[in-house]
């Protein structure tokens, strides 16, 4: 049972990092980014490259993946979205644009994995890092590292958003872009910031992901569903929504499914993704703005004095 809990927490931590990016870019740019999962896979490949060619342990290469991921996020904004936003494209067009971008990233990942294979003389289209993981007082390294990443990210975001001038401007332009613009705040900066962070966090999550599951170029296609579910259940209009949603979805996918399997038999286990999807549907139907959009949450927020 304890293993189920540990596994669920690691997966939730990664989901939180991925969903944070999705929520942030949704708030600033107004587009649900279908390429978010591919960012993570690119992160996995960056970590793999550093491991194979520079013999850098994936945990140690996290700063590098963070920066490269940020650049990837910025590229996404500049190449795929900005030209369309300039032309006043509709939200559906932006969504389709992120899909097209996703396809490009998929192709690049595949081509790159083949190039890497020819250099390392190993098949690099499918890989795991799990055998590289360490243990600390019986706890797997991936649990410690992913939890630390989430904590650091939350702390960093809190300090940035609530303790600096830039942060205040950021929050203002996230909450009400047109008003913020009228007040002389540069909305473009917020967008750049959010895309940088979105890519960076996703790539970091991506370099931890191979400790949990095998990576193939197609992996992104499968995990994007969970990321969306996390962001939506938590609430797309609030950064903290990703945090709450990430844990709810991550835990329900493994822990809740497992508990169900005790009562309904092992056949239920294959439907774990169905469960997160159903939770997403129910959330949307009951309260579309997600958990952070409820009255209760507002009270909590006031109490926390945020």
């Amino acid at each position: 049972m304890i293993d189920v809990v540990i596994g669920a927490i690691v997966w939730s931590n990664l989901l939180v990092l991925l969903a944070l990016g999705l929520t942030m870019t949704y708030i600033t740019t107004g587009v649900p980014n279908f390429a978010q999962a591919s960012f993570a896979i690119i992160g996995s490949y960056i970590a793999l490259t550093l491991l194979r060619l520079a013999e850098l342990h994936p945990y140690l290469s996290l700063p590098v993946t963070f920066i490269l991921g940020g650049i990837l996020g910025l590229l996404t904004y500049y190449l795929a979205l900005k030209p369309l936003i300039k032309r006043k494209a509709s939200i559906e067009m932006l969504m389709i644009a992120t899909l097209a971008w996703d396809l490009i990233l998929f192709g690049i990942t595949g081509a790159y994995s083949e190039l890497l294979s020819s250099i390392t003389k190993k098949t690099e289209t499918l890989f795991v890092f799990t055998y590289l993981d360490f243990e600390f007082y019986g706890l797997p390294g991936r649990l410690i590292v992913s939890s630390l990443l989430v904590l650091l990210t939350i702390l960093g975001l809190y300090l940035l958003l609530y303790k600096t001038k830039f942060g205040i401007a950021l929050r203002a332009s996230m909450e009400n872009p047109s008003l913020a613009e009228a007040m002389g705040i540069n909305v473009e900066n917020t967008r750049l910031f959010s895309w940088f962070l979105s890519g960076a966090l996703a790539c970091m999550a991506g370099s931890v992901l191979p400790f949990l599951q095998e990576i193939v170029p197609q992996t992104g296609y499968f995990i994007i569903v969970s990321i969306f579910a996390a962001s939506i259940v938590g609430g797309l209009y609030h950064i903290l929504g990703a945090l709450i949603g990430g844990y709810i979805i991550g835990i329900s996918e493994s822990l809740f499914t497992y508990v169900l399997s005790i009562f309904l038999g092992p056949g239920v286990l294959v439907y774990s993704k169905v469960i997160s999807l159903l939770m997403m549907i129910v959330t949307i139907l009951i309260h579309p703005k997600g958990i952070t959009g409820t009255e209760l949450w507002r009270k909590v927020e006031r109490w926390l004095n945020l």
Partner: peptide
Amino acid sequence: WLQYIIFG
């Protein structure tokens, strides 16, 4: 792979 990239 080229096919996906070009199409995108």
